[in-house]
Computed example of a mutant assay.
Amino acid sequence: MSPHDGTDPERRAAAHGPVMRALMLAAALLCLALGIVGIFVPGLPTTVFILMAAWCASRGSPRLSAWLERHRLFGPMIRDWRTHRAVSRRVKWRASAVMALCAAVLFVAVRDWRIAGLGTAAMAAVAVWLWLRPEPA
């Protein structure tokens, strides 16, 4: 049960028609795949894609939603977000370090400093938003 919408995943999924459930399941699987790839590819976020996968799965597949919440790596992150809208300090530090590394690579690899600056500004905005999120107890 999610404290933010008052319904469990099965009821949320049932509220959508079969086409919407299929689209949500497809989106959940795509986000999950991108999140897993993000574990290994610097610059590709993991947390955001896993949270998006959980949101889509809760509307498209109660079984996938339950699996994600029970997962040893993804489960705590999803539960912290659903319960408290919180992100752990460890995740914040890792995300910030990867964004800083990517910003440095941008300035080295991209010839136009304005493009590198724009990408870095976007990452800085995400980092500020991330650090303003509460941390789980």
Rank of each mutant, 00 (worst) to 15 (best):
R12A: 13
R12M: 06
T120V: 10
M20E: 15
A28F: 05
V98F: 10
R79P: 05
P3V: 13
A122Y: 12
V19H: 10
R72A: 13
M99H: 09
A127I: 10
K92P: 04
V128G: 09
R72H: 12
H4E: 03
T7H: 11
I115R: 07
T7Y: 09
L101M: 14
H4Q: 12
C56W: 00
L101R: 08
V110W: 08
F74R: 03
P136G: 11
V41F: 09
A57L: 08
V41L: 15
A26M: 08
G117R: 07
D80G: 00
R111V: 12
W55S: 07
W55P: 04
A27H: 06
R111C: 01
L51Q: 00
P134V: 07
R79W: 05
A53Y: 02
M99T: 00
L23M: 14
I36M: 02
V105M: 14
L23I: 08
A97P: 03
M20Y: 03
R72S: 13
V37G: 04
L68W: 05
C102G: 14
V41P: 03
V87F: 04
A116Q: 05
S61K: 01
A66H: 12
V126W: 12
T120K: 07
D112V: 08
P18W: 00
L68Q: 05
L132N: 13
P45Q: 02
A104E: 01
T47V: 15
R89N: 06
R70K: 14
A127Y: 00
L106W: 11
R12N: 09
L29Y: 03
P18H: 05
L30Q: 10
G43D: 05
A95W: 02
A127L: 12
F49V: 02
L23F: 08
W131I: 05
D80W: 03
V37E: 03
L51M: 09
D80E: 08
A22P: 03
R114T: 14
C56H: 15
I50F: 05
T7E: 12
A26Q: 09
F107Q: 07
L118M: 12
L118F: 14
S96L: 15
V37K: 01
A116T: 09
P9R: 01
L73K: 05
T47S: 14
G60A: 08
R79A: 11
S88K: 01
V110Q: 12
